[in-house]
Amino acid sequence: MVKIENITKTYEKGKVKALTNINLSIEKGELFGLIGPDGAGKTSLFRILTSLLIPDSGIVKIMNFDVVKDYKEIRKITGYMPGKFSLYQDLSVEENLNFFASVFGTTVKENYSLIEDIYVQIEPFKKRLAGKLSGGMKQKLALSCALIHKPEILVLDEPTTGVDAVSRKEFWEMLKKLKSEGITILVSTPYMDEASLCDRIALIQNGEILSVDKPLNIINQFNKKLFAIRTSNMYQLMQDLKQFGSLNTAFLFGQVVHFTSKNKNTNSEEIRFFLKENNHSDIFIKEIVPSIEDCFMEFAKNEK
């Protein structure tokens, strides 16, 4: 469906490297996630995919159409939802939808079945100007507009950034439904917890792909024991863990520190002993299953 080969993109005459030698292959009907922090190059890659940006080198083909040469065809088969709300704020919900349907040479009626589930939620506000919608509703409208021409592939750039938890959950439900309609979906997100909702994910940082696989496989690649540690003095805990002999990584994750050791035989008793020696009290240690975020941190560390 999508073949990305050796894509490199630089800005400011080569000074800023946005993407370095990216290779990806996405199957038809896949829900593919591009996971990475801000500035990793997610938007640059998506803009190349949607023919908005020309890569310095490399080839991208969507359904055998080249994104540079056959950009006209590409635009007919892709639906793109930019990270920033880019619909006409001074047109109503209905007018935006009708406008985008008509410039794609179709009508809302024709493809209504595809957007029905999403559109019914904003239909009560169809006369309202798009600029006056709430964040979640704006996002639903943008998705409707991106879908109105029944695209083969849907490219969503950080659709859930700045959206509340409930709306985020709803949004992923909608994506699952669209996937079942046979639409290939590419979605980028900085939220690691959303990664497990994708069929396959690519972890991206500083313009380079760290790993591509199914979320479970990525977690399985994590070959170290991971400990969640909490004590009464978290700051001191971080400082002390750095003195731990076989320390691999120690990151603060919300209320706890995620800790890995270079030594496979390190166990919680050993750590507890070490911490007690360093005068920690209320010690809580548990071996946990790594999350995508842990994997990302691990890969990012190895990359450096």
Binding site: S51, L52, R75, T78, P82, K84, F85, C145
Partner: peptide, 12 residues
């Protein structure tokens, strides 16, 4: 406003 982005991906 960025709306040109959305126009650019249409066949206009």
């Amino acid at each position: 406003i960025g709306t040109i982005e959305q126009i650019n991906v249409t066949p206009i």
